[in-house]
Simulated assay, not measured.
Amino acid sequence: MPFITTSDGVEIFYQDFGSGRPVLFSHGWPLSSEAWERELKLFADHGYRVIAHDRRGHGRSSRSRTGNDMDTYAADLAALVDALDLRDLSLVGHSTGGGEVVRYAARHGAGRVSKVVTVGAVPPYMIVTEENPDGTPLEALDGIRAGVLADRSQFYQDLTTPFFGADREGSTISQGQRDDFWRQGMLVGLQSAYDCVKAFSETDFTEDLRALDVPVLIAHGDDDQIVPIKAAAYRSIDIVRLGTLKVYPGAPHGIVGAYQEQLDKDILEFLAE
């Protein structure tokens, strides 16, 4: 299996298929590159080289007690992109991965990155403040940490309900999809899972968004119960210079079903522009 080794000795697993212009996918918490399996096949079938990695501590990458923060995640991504010498690169990031690709592109991507796509992403800043009244209360994030620490197996099972909108009328999420979320989540080291909550929720990406000088597609479901659209996409689109906002009515945080089908079409169209 392919790995790269970071400067602090962490092994980062990645998948790499196809040929053509490269597209790199970054997953959400607490998942892995396997969250993008449909896209890896679909985009490779459309003539792209597709790459997806497991964030440190997640999936098949090394578990690490250190470096579970957004600066290091972006540096790990830079190490992977440099090792593969990827250029004219499009980045696609979901949730936490959206923050990761924005920070990478802003700080490391000059001369390599040509387009950025965020999906249900955490930028610009997730926590509720006076300037961000639609954000998430810190107490809710503390609850996530407590759930992970106390009984992460049951917590991940319960989390699939708001993540996929299973509590909404007309939901078509399958038990298999919920089980796969749990399976991926259980591969994350406890330390990494716990620390990543702070990384995705308390990192301010405002200046990263301002620094982007490439086209950015900001995609978000308007029924996202994990990353509320008002605090995320609606604020991000006002910050980026070359942004396009795509809102999916009734779509949840998790990328599944008809939402996934339309999103994939929209991303392929954006990349082809």
Rank of each mutant, 00 (worst) to 15 (best):
M1I: 09
M1V: 09
M1N: 06
P2E: 12
F3E: 09
I4G: 00
I12M: 06
F13Y: 14
Y14Q: 04
V23H: 03
F25R: 01
L31G: 08
A35R: 04
L42M: 12
L42E: 12
H46Y: 06
A52D: 05
H53A: 13
D54T: 13
D54I: 12
R55S: 12
G57A: 14
R63K: 15
S64F: 07
T66M: 03
G67H: 11
G67E: 04
D69M: 10
D69Q: 15
D71Y: 13
D82C: 13
L84F: 14
L84D: 03
L89C: 09
L91G: 02
V92L: 13
G93D: 01
H94G: 03
G97R: 05
G98N: 04
G99S: 10
V101L: 14
R103P: 00
A105R: 08
K115W: 03
V116H: 08
T118F: 00
V122L: 06
I127L: 15
E130G: 09
T136N: 03
L138N: 05
L138R: 11
D142M: 08
G143A: 13
V148P: 00
V148I: 15
L149D: 09
Q157T: 04
T160R: 07
T161S: 10
A166L: 08
A166H: 02
R168N: 09
G170R: 08
T172F: 09
I173M: 11
S174C: 08
Q175V: 15
R178E: 08
Q184P: 12
L187K: 14
L190I: 14
Y194M: 14
Y194K: 10
D195L: 07
C196M: 15
V197L: 14
F200P: 00
F205H: 11
E207T: 08
D213T: 11
V214F: 09
P215G: 05
P215W: 02
L217G: 03
D223L: 02
D223A: 15
I226K: 02
S236C: 12
R241A: 15
R241K: 15
G243K: 07
Y248I: 05
P249M: 12
P252R: 04
P252E: 04
G254W: 01
E261N: 11
Q262L: 12
Q262N: 13
K265L: 15
I267M: 08
I267Q: 07
L268Y: 06
E269K: 14
F270T: 02
